[in-house]
């Protein structure tokens, strides 16, 4: 589904990704871990197509297409979803209006008729249950005045509504208390399926207790220096990143 080959990217003239390769198949959950400044967020943003990054080498193939040549909205409509580390507030725009516009943009892209307001409201209320969200949130402005946990839960609600093929979760666990973490993880687990893939970017192993990954990769210095199963995450939690950085240093 996703093939990243020898990806190099710079931001503001500084090289951040230095030859990253990763392959994700449908149904798989990949966790990307790594210390601060290793390029985790850059990887998420580059995949979603945010401005401010320059791709200086390598390629990203998504469902046989050159992902890097698509605009951010085209990527979204093709089923790439980024759950933001810091979700943005949009004052005056109600959550349900925003969700409906996003959902219908995707349906239109697939050549399906748009869903009308009544049917959509019913649909979105079902989805809100999935993340145990009070339907009152649907009438509030997008993320405005939401607590950190509510914003993250709102990201997962969007994920549930848009049903992306490839979801990238950028430190979705940061700023969540243990109860909120469980709710968010449950929401994601319910979304798992043989056709959907997840890339979970995180600092801590904690999230991976709830969202059990198939593969764990350690990102350091802009490349993946170690890959393994879920045991690797537990080892990292115990021993830190230090030992990998020395072991995996490029020759």
């Amino acid at each position: 589904m996703l093939k990243i080959k020898d990806l190099h990217a710079t931001a503001g003239g500084k090289a951040i990704l230095k030859g990253l390769s990763l392959e994700v198949k449908p149904g798989e959950v990949h966790a990307i871990m790594g210390p601060n400044g290793s390029g985790k967020s850059t990887l998420s943003y580059v995949l979603a197509g945010r401005g401010g990054y320059e791709i200086t080498g390598g390629s990203v193939e998504y469902q046989g297409k050159d992902l890097l040549s698509l605009s951010p909205e085209e990527r979204a409509r093709e089923g790439v979803f980024l759950a933001f580390q810091y979700p943005v507030e949009i004052p005056g725009v109600s959550n349900k209006y925003f969700l409906k516009a996003a959902y219908n943009a995707q349906r239109k892209h697939r050549g399906e008729p748009e869903m009308d307001a009544g049917a959509f409201l019913k649909f979105v209320k079902e989805k809100a249950k999935l993340v145990e969200m009070d339907p009152a949130f649907l009438n509030r402005s997008v993320n405005e005045g939401f607590s950190g946990g509510e914003k993250k839960r709102n990201e997962i609600l969007q994920l549930a509504v848009l049903e992306p093929k490839l979801s990238i979760l950028d430190e979705t666990d940061s700023g969540l208390d243990i109860d909120a973490l469980k709710i968010v993880a449950n929401g994601i687990n319910k979304m798992r399926g043989p056709k959907r893939a997840f890339v979970v970017v995180t600092h801590y192993q904690r999230l991976l207790d709830y969202i059990v990954p198939d593969f764990v990769h350690v990102l350091s210095g802009g490349r993946i220096v170690k890959s393994g199963g879920k045991m690797l995450a537990q080892q990292l939690e115990k021993e830190g990143y230090g030992w990998i950085e020395t072991e995996g240093a490029p020759a």
Partner: peptide, 14 residues
């Protein structure tokens, strides 16, 4: 902000 625009575009809006 660029951030607001990118957020909405990432959800599929032009």
């Amino acid at each position: 902000g660029e951030d607001q625009l990118f957020y909405l575009r990432q959800r599929g809006l032009s």
